[in-house]
Simulated scan of single mutants.
Amino acid sequence: MEPQGKIWMDGAFVDWADANVHVLTHSLHYGLAAFEGLRCYRGKSGSAIFRLHEHVDRLFESAHIAMMTIPYDKKQVAEAIVETVRINKLDACYIRPLVYIGYGAMGVYPGDNPIKLAVAAWKWGAYLGDDALANGMRARVSSFTRHHVNVSMTRGKISGYYVNSILAKREAKADGYDEAIMLDPEGYVSEGTGENIFIVRKGRIKTTPLTSILEGITRNSVIELAREQGIVVQEDRFTRDEMYIADEVFVTGTAAELTPVREIDNRRIGNGKPGPITAALQKAFFSVVRGEDAAHASWLTRI
């Protein structure tokens, strides 16, 4: 991570190196915090944040699920995100808003500890690497199971839930893979450590329904782009072996964007290269985020 100039913290910009919290900050100990990930892209007509308002909506939904009341309204948070990009003079970046429980009472019950908000932005290229974005990544099915809906409420983007992702990612990387794919508690494919999963068979797309997975904003965008191209998209459960025999597999997410998967559990997917539907949707996605698709201009907030 390349340090930038300023981070927005509770209504004011502070120097990057001074954006600190107390070691007894409640969320640091117990993991109850909500966050978002957004991207700002450089385009022909300048830079723009992709689906800013949808991300702000989801941040508020996650905080609501976690019983945290954000001390700002949605307009103020959206403005803080835009200003964080502007003040750091970034034309392309990743943006991280974080809502957390601050210093005060210690113990599982946070009492009336203050709810804090920070927004940071930094330069970040292809999350899974440029080669994976172009040629596909290698993944393994993890030994770790994704959350049950009544253990961790899966519609919330909650910091503590990602311990599960960290363990799965470390296991996959230690075994020489780029990413992990997790199954749900009933053994069906759920999602990656930070991505939604799509498979393509016989010209149709299938993706996990909104049961054990986060309601991905990039996922939603890609489903819409696919249907506009006349591709049938089913939201339905599927098994790990259906991934093995798929013609194409790809993952989506703010960080991962749209990344092909060329191999799972040492089994080649299709011909081992990004397939035609994956390539077409990846092209359409990047056309949108770079401001080249006027039909989806409403998805962009200009900086």
Rank of each mutant, 00 (worst) to 15 (best):
E2A: 14
I7P: 00
I7L: 01
M9A: 04
D10H: 07
A12Q: 13
V14E: 06
A17C: 09
A17W: 05
H29Q: 12
L32T: 15
A33T: 01
F35H: 06
L38S: 09
L38Y: 04
Y41G: 07
Y41V: 03
R42E: 14
K44P: 01
K44M: 04
K44D: 13
G46F: 07
A48Q: 10
L52D: 02
H55M: 01
H55S: 03
L59C: 10
E61D: 10
A63K: 00
H64W: 02
A66R: 02
M67I: 07
I70F: 01
K74E: 05
Q76Y: 00
V77A: 01
V77M: 02
A80T: 06
V82R: 10
E83I: 08
T84Q: 12
K89L: 11
A92W: 05
C93V: 05
C93R: 04
P97I: 06
V99W: 00
V99Y: 00
Y100Q: 01
Y100V: 00
I101Y: 03
M106T: 06
M106A: 01
G107M: 07
V108W: 12
Y109H: 14
I115G: 05
L117A: 06
L117T: 01
A120Q: 08
W122Y: 13
W122E: 08
W122D: 09
K123S: 15
W124L: 13
G125A: 11
G125N: 09
A126T: 08
G129F: 05
G129K: 05
D131M: 06
G136V: 08
M137P: 09
S142N: 10
R146M: 08
H147S: 15
H148K: 06
V149H: 09
V151P: 00
S152W: 11
M153D: 13
M153H: 12
T154M: 06
G156E: 04
G156W: 00
V163S: 10
I166Y: 09
L167I: 11
K169I: 07
R170N: 08
E171G: 05
A174R: 09
G176D: 07
M182V: 00
L183G: 04
D184Y: 07
P185M: 11
V189T: 05
S190V: 06
S190Q: 03
N196C: 08
N196M: 07
R201G: 03
K202N: 13
G203C: 02
K206E: 03
P209A: 13
L214K: 05
E215F: 02
I217Q: 05
R219Q: 06
E224R: 09
A226M: 06
R227I: 01
E228K: 11
G230H: 14
I231Q: 11
Q234V: 09
E235F: 01
D236F: 02
E242T: 11
M243T: 15
I245C: 13
I245M: 08
V249Y: 09
G253R: 04
G253I: 15
A255G: 14
L258T: 04
P260W: 14
G275M: 13
P276E: 14
Q282S: 05
K283C: 04
A284E: 05
V288C: 02
V288I: 07
G291N: 09
D293W: 03
D293M: 10
A294W: 00
A295N: 14
L300N: 08
L300R: 11
L300Y: 14
